[in-house]
């Protein structure tokens, strides 16, 4: 998104805000539906908004609702959340490598806003990532998530069904929009994304791993295997 000629002049915070627009749009249908589902699960409006404010992790909030509705214990819900969100450890470790040398408290603050989507956008940005950029990016994503959770609950409706259905592709389309330019640029990224896609498909469809473990293992395995092959190739060239 920052390939336009204005990007160089733009302050990092504004750049982050602009990059966050796609996420804000993509979160809307998911957050609205979350609010609606929370209501039917029997949560209060305050509890619903509190969950979005404190947790800020779409998939695990959905799973918490479905586990609550079948009477699963709280400890198990927390454990499930932990496993599902372990992948963010890998993402934060990766982002740390391209983070500018901001104060640790600023990093610890924006770390709260690392989701699949904010990570992907930040990771695909050219150059380094500053705290200001992350604050702008996360403000858009977090704002959309919290506000739309509340609206979904209060209004008790989501988008019209056909629009809701077609908007369910939004975040995936965003991931594709971020990935494809990299695929065109560098051969290695094709292997990375392709292998991880195959491993994740095997993990969920064949080995029936939980979504959390499958994504972590597929990502790590692909990143390690490709790095190992690349190193091996370099050594052989010498």
């Amino acid at each position: 998104m920052e390939t336009t000629w204005t990007a160089g002049k733009m302050a990092p915070f504004r750049q982050g805000v602009q990059a966050g627009v796609a996420i804000a749009i993509g979160y809307m249908p998911i957050a609205l539906t979350f609010g609606l589902l929370a209501k039917t699960t029997g949560l209060t409006l305050a509890e619903t908004v509190l969950m979005s404010v404190v947790v800020f992790a779409g998939a695990s909030q959905y799973i918490a609702l479905s586990l609550l509705s079948v009477g699963t214990g709280i400890f198990e819900i927390i454990l499930t959340t932990f496993v599902l969100n372990l992948r963010h450890f890998l993402m934060s470790a990766s982002l740390n490598e391209k983070a500018e040398a901001d104060a640790l408290w600023k990093k610890a603050l924006y770390a709260f806003g690392i989701t699949d989507e904010t990570f992907s956008v930040a990771a695909m940005k050219e150059g380094t990532v500053s705290a200001s950029y992350m604050f702008g990016l996360i403000m858009m994503a977090y704002g959309s998530w919290v506000v739309n959770s509340g609206i979904g609950y209060a209004v008790g409706a989501s988008l019209p069904e056909s629009l809701q259905e077609s908007m369910s592709v939004a975040l995936y389309a965003m991931f594709i929009g971020l990935l494809v330019p990299a695929l065109k640029k560098e051969r290695k990224t094709v292997w990375l994304a392709g292998l991880a896609a195959v491993f994740n498909s095997l993990g969920t469809l064949v080995f029936h791993l939980s979504k959390g473990w499958s994504i972590v293992l597929a990502t790590l395995l692909s990143a390690v295997v490709v790095e190992w092959l690349a190193k091996k190739g370099e050594n052989e060239d010498e």
């Binding site: 992948r87 890998l90 993402m91 470790a93 990766s94 740390n96 490598e97 699949d116 990570f119 992907s120 990771a123 695909m124 995936y172 991931f175 594709i176 971020l178 990935l179 990299a182 290695k188 990224t189 990375l192 994304a193 392709g194 292998l195 991880a196 896609a197 491993f199 994740n200 498909s201 969920t204 469809l205 499958s214 994504i215 597929a218 990502t219 790590l220 692909s222 990143a223 390690v224 490709v226 790095e227 690349a230 190193k231």
Partner: peptide, 21 residues
């Protein structure tokens, strides 16, 4: 080696986030 792995993570993660979901 691990710096390289962490630089690879975003592309691998995107692949896994998109497919098969």
């Amino acid at each position: 080696f691990w710096q390289g792995v962490l630089k690879n993570v975003p592309y691998a993660a995107l692949g896994a986030l998109i497919i098969p979901d």
